[in-house]
Every structure is written in C-alpha cells, then in structure tokens.
Design a protein around this nucleic acid. Structure first.
Length: 287
DNA sequence: AAATGCGGCAACCGCCTACTG
DNA sequence: ACAGTAGGCGGTTGCCGCATT
C-alpha cells in the first residue's frame, strides 16, 4: 500500500511556473515567512502542491541564491566534497552559499562528471580509471578518519542564539593531517604510524588550508517549531539544546590548526576562522 | 528553412526520516 | 508503541533552446 498523495493532484497545476505564480509565492513568503508548505498553496492562492511550492522557492525564488556560472573554486570544492560525501547533494550545497542541492546535482551530472572523466578519474569512485589505485571512496562509517567536533553558540542567529556543532573530518598520515585526496591516498598505501592529533604535520599551513574542508552540522531548535515541555520529544530537543549550551561553558574550544601545529609564521591562525570569527576547523580542548 | 540531436535545467516522483498525537 | 503526516532528499523525467545536418 502506497502513501497517500501529499495533495489533491486533480486540482493542482503541474509543469513550469508562471510569473504570476512566482509572484504570489514570493509575496506570500515575504508576508508570512516559510512555514507549513502543505497549507501554503491554498493560503497563497496557488493551485500547486506544497512540495512544488517548496522546491520552487528553495531552488529558484529564494533571494539569497547565487545565479550564474560556477567558478573554478566552486568546481574543485564540489569535487572534493563529493569524494568525501558521495551524492549527498544537500550536504554539499550546505558548503556552497547561494547554491542549491538541485543546482549542484545538475551541474555535477552535466559538467563535472565530464570534467573528471576527461582527467581520467571515475566520477563516482574518484579513482583513476586505468591504474587501479589511489583516491579514496566516500567515507564509510568506521573509516579511519578523525572526527573533530565541538559546539559553540551562534550569536548571529536570531531571535535567540543557538548552539552549533562543527565537525571536521581529518585523515592522518605520515605526511600530516589532511583530507586532501592525494595525501589521503598515501596514507592508505603506507602504514599509519601516528594517529595522535597532537603530533605535528609536515605539510605547510598553506597546503593544509587549501585542502581542508569542514562539515558543519547544526543542532538546535527547528525554526518555526515550538518546544514546549508538554511534548516528550520537544523536551528531548530542549535537553539537547541545553546540554550543548552548558557544554560550551564547560569546555572551551581550541583551534584545531593551532593544536596540530599548523600555525602560520606570524603565530596567528586567522585562516582557521570564518569571516564571522568562528573557527572553521577546531576541536574540543582536552580536559 | 526545416528536421534532428543533444545538453542543460526546472520540476516531478517516490522514498525516507522525524515528529506529533 | 504505533499510525499518520510533513518535510526533505536523491534519482529521474521532460521541456526548451541551441547546434548541427
């Protein structure tokens, strides 16, 4: 038995959106914000499925979307993220501001696949097509990577600051710590001698920072969802929220690059920080 | 100029997960 | 514990515009 349809298909439009429909959707979301997609079409006077409205908004109408061609930097970032995550387009999109999962997925299928094949690389496995070697498959659970994670409060979020957990995936090798494919490949063919994060790497700051990536996950109240104490699950969510908050106070974060000895010559680690001052890559300080 | 092929992309479909009552 | 529901995700489809014949 299948699921019931998300809406009454007989009374919904399908296919390309008209300018009028777009305008109705934009006007409604401007006035009321993103909320219940199921009831939105009726409230906005649209003969569309809620899912369709959501997709149209997220993939096309959202004001913060970056339209236009992908840059070379974005290309390389997508390739690296895909080598780590596989077809997790939404996660990849999360690291490319202004880009949507759908857009990246399309771009991957139409451009990057071809680009990689041209380089002699299998776009799915990221391995060289002829020589049976080298680059790693996307990370699997339990793979030999260090996951560095910690939590901070994101004071940018409003109206209430929320805790944010940041996670960095790091592979260790004789050559230092990196998630760069080439370095990681070396670590696969050579015995890993040191899995201790406190050892110093031999790669330079620049090399390290060019190749580092971080995957940010957020925990916290879901926007638009109420967390009252009468609901068991809401209470659990609130508990996680509170735990994260208290954890922040008890265990300050430490910049991972500094901890690994990847400071730049001037002793600063500004490259480890986002523009907003939060660390891109760091781990919880040992107690 | 018309027909055909192809690539790009918006939109849809079906499944999965998280949440609610 | 369970069923129903909404939101989210990845795979796929189909339309449209451009290039080629």
């Amino acid at each position: 038995m299948g699921r019931s349809p998300c809406c009454e298909k007989a009374h919904t439009n399908k296919g390309a959106w008209t300018k009028e429909e777009d305008q109705r959707l934009i006007d409604y979301i401007r006035r009321h914000g993103e909320g219940c997609w199921r009831s939105l079409p009726q409230a906005a006077g649209l003969l569309r499925c809620g899912k369709s409205c959501r997709l149209r908004w997220i993939n096309y109408l959202r004001p913060d979307l970056k339209r236009g061609n992908f840059t070379e930097e974005e290309d390389e970032l997508i390739i690296k993220l895909h080598s780590l995550l596989g077809n997790k387009w939404s996660l990849i999109a999360g690291r490319l501001p202004g880009r949507t999962d759908n857009e990246i997925k399309n771009y991957w299928n139409t451009h990057i696949k071809r680009k990689l094949i041209g380089r002699g690389i299998d776009p799915q496995t990221h391995q060289h097509l002829k020589s049976g070697s080298t680059a790693p498959a996307p990370l699997a659970a339990g793979s030999a990577h260090t996951v560095a994670a910690t939590t901070h409060i994101d004071f940018r979020s409003s109206p209430q600051p929320r805790p944010v957990t940041q996670i960095a995936l790091i592979s260790s090798s004789k050559h230092g710590y990196s998630i760069d494919n080439t370095l990681h490949a070396k670590s696969k063919s050579e015995p890993v001698e040191d899995n201790n994060c406190s050892s110093s790497g031999t790669i330079t700051d620049e090399e390290n920072l060019q190749t580092e990536l971080n995957l940010e996950l957020s925990i916290g109240p879901v926007p638009g969802r109420s967390y009252n104490s009468t609901s068991k699950r809401s209470a659990q969510a609130a508990s996680i929220f509170n735990t994260a908050e208290s954890k922040l106070q008890m265990s300050p974060s430490v910049c991972l690059c500094c901890q690994l000895g990847f400071r730049s010559s001037d002793g600063l680690c500004r490259s480890c920080q986002n523009g907003d001052g939060f660390f891109k890559l760091y781990r919880e300080q040992d107690r």
